Amino acid sequence: VTVHVNRYTYHFDNPEEAEKFAREMAKRLNMTVEIHGNTLKVE
């Protein structure tokens, strides 16, 4: 599972951890999480 935050890319083996990380980053940056299959984008 890949998480994109701005120009950074993070890889996770565990989808739940990836989503938790993405949501935490989105909250911190006041952004939203978009899910595209195995890719989560924080925008």
Results as ranks from 00 to 15, higher is better:
residue 13 D to E: 10
residue 20 K to W: 08
residue 5 V to D: 03
residue 23 R to W: 14
residue 39 T to E: 11
residue 36 H to I: 13
residue 16 E to D: 11
residue 13 D to I: 08
residue 24 E to A: 12
residue 37 G to P: 05
residue 33 V to K: 00
residue 28 R to D: 06
residue 37 G to T: 04
residue 21 F to A: 02
residue 41 K to T: 14
residue 34 E to T: 15
residue 21 F to D: 00
residue 18 A to R: 00
residue 5 V to Y: 07
residue 1 V to P: 03
residue 40 L to R: 05
residue 19 E to W: 15
residue 10 Y to C: 09
residue 26 A to W: 01
residue 3 V to N: 02
residue 2 T to S: 08
residue 11 H to D: 04
residue 2 T to M: 07
residue 3 V to G: 01
residue 29 L to I: 03
residue 14 N to L: 07
residue 38 N to L: 05
residue 8 Y to G: 06
residue 2 T to E: 07
residue 33 V to N: 01
residue 6 N to P: 03
residue 10 Y to T: 02
residue 29 L to N: 05
residue 24 E to G: 07
residue 27 K to Y: 06
residue 33 V to G: 01
residue 13 D to L: 08
residue 43 E to V: 15
residue 20 K to E: 11
residue 33 V to A: 02
residue 25 M to S: 03
residue 5 V to C: 13
residue 18 A to E: 00
residue 14 N to C: 11
residue 14 N to R: 05
residue 23 R to K: 11
residue 30 N to G: 14
residue 35 I to A: 09
residue 9 T to M: 12
residue 4 H to N: 05
residue 26 A to Y: 02
residue 8 Y to Q: 14
residue 40 L to E: 05
residue 15 P to M: 15
residue 22 A to E: 01
residue 26 A to M: 04
residue 27 K to M: 09
residue 32 T to Q: 10
residue 11 H to E: 07
residue 17 E to A: 11
residue 3 V to E: 01
residue 20 K to H: 10
residue 20 K to R: 12
residue 42 V to F: 03
residue 13 D to N: 10
residue 28 R to Y: 09
residue 25 M to F: 04
residue 22 A to Q: 01
residue 26 A to V: 02
residue 21 F to K: 00
residue 22 A to I: 04
residue 15 P to S: 11
residue 14 N to H: 06
residue 38 N to H: 05
residue 11 H to C: 15
residue 20 K to N: 10
residue 32 T to N: 09
residue 25 M to W: 12
residue 16 E to M: 11
residue 20 K to D: 08
residue 41 K to W: 15
residue 40 L to W: 05
residue 20 K to C: 15
residue 17 E to R: 06
residue 15 P to N: 09
residue 35 I to T: 07
residue 9 T to Y: 11
residue 39 T to I: 14
residue 5 V to H: 04
residue 24 E to Y: 13
residue 40 L to P: 04
residue 21 F to Q: 00
residue 6 N to L: 14
residue 3 V to S: 01
residue 9 T to P: 06
residue 26 A to S: 05
residue 37 G to Q: 05
residue 18 A to Q: 00
residue 40 L to G: 06
residue 29 L to C: 15
residue 22 A to D: 00
residue 32 T to V: 14
residue 11 H to Q: 07
residue 24 E to T: 08
residue 2 T to P: 02
residue 39 T to G: 08
residue 38 N to T: 06
residue 14 N to Y: 05
residue 28 R to A: 10
residue 26 A to E: 04
residue 21 F to M: 02
residue 3 V to C: 02
residue 23 R to T: 09
residue 16 E to G: 08
residue 21 F to C: 06
residue 8 Y to W: 13
residue 43 E to H: 13
residue 42 V to L: 12
residue 25 M to N: 02
residue 30 N to Q: 07
residue 33 V to T: 02
residue 17 E to Y: 06
residue 16 E to P: 05
residue 22 A to T: 01
residue 35 I to M: 09
residue 39 T to W: 08
residue 38 N to A: 05
residue 35 I to G: 04
residue 33 V to L: 08
residue 30 N to D: 07
residue 24 E to I: 10
residue 32 T to R: 12
residue 7 R to M: 10
residue 1 V to A: 08
residue 16 E to W: 12
residue 25 M to R: 02
residue 40 L to V: 14
residue 38 N to P: 07
residue 39 T to D: 11
residue 28 R to C: 15
residue 2 T to R: 07
residue 27 K to D: 10
residue 32 T to E: 06
residue 42 V to D: 06
residue 6 N to R: 07
residue 12 F to M: 01
residue 12 F to S: 00
residue 14 N to D: 14
residue 34 E to C: 13
residue 14 N to A: 06
residue 5 V to W: 07
residue 37 G to D: 08
residue 34 E to K: 15
residue 38 N to S: 07
residue 8 Y to E: 14
residue 2 T to N: 06
residue 42 V to T: 04
residue 6 N to V: 07
residue 21 F to S: 00
residue 16 E to Y: 11
residue 18 A to H: 00
residue 4 H to W: 03
residue 1 V to L: 07
residue 7 R to T: 10
residue 33 V to D: 01
residue 2 T to W: 12
residue 38 N to V: 03
residue 4 H to A: 05
residue 18 A to F: 02
residue 23 R to Q: 10
residue 2 T to F: 08
residue 21 F to P: 00
residue 1 V to M: 11
residue 5 V to Q: 02
residue 26 A to L: 03
residue 24 E to S: 10
residue 33 V to Y: 04
residue 5 V to K: 02
residue 15 P to C: 15
residue 28 R to M: 12
residue 43 E to K: 14
residue 35 I to C: 12
residue 14 N to Q: 06
residue 9 T to S: 09
residue 42 V to K: 03
residue 22 A to S: 02
residue 20 K to V: 09
residue 4 H to C: 14
residue 16 E to V: 12
residue 27 K to R: 12
residue 30 N to A: 05
residue 25 M to I: 14
residue 3 V to L: 02
residue 41 K to C: 15
residue 9 T to Q: 12
residue 43 E to Q: 14
residue 28 R to L: 13
residue 6 N to T: 06
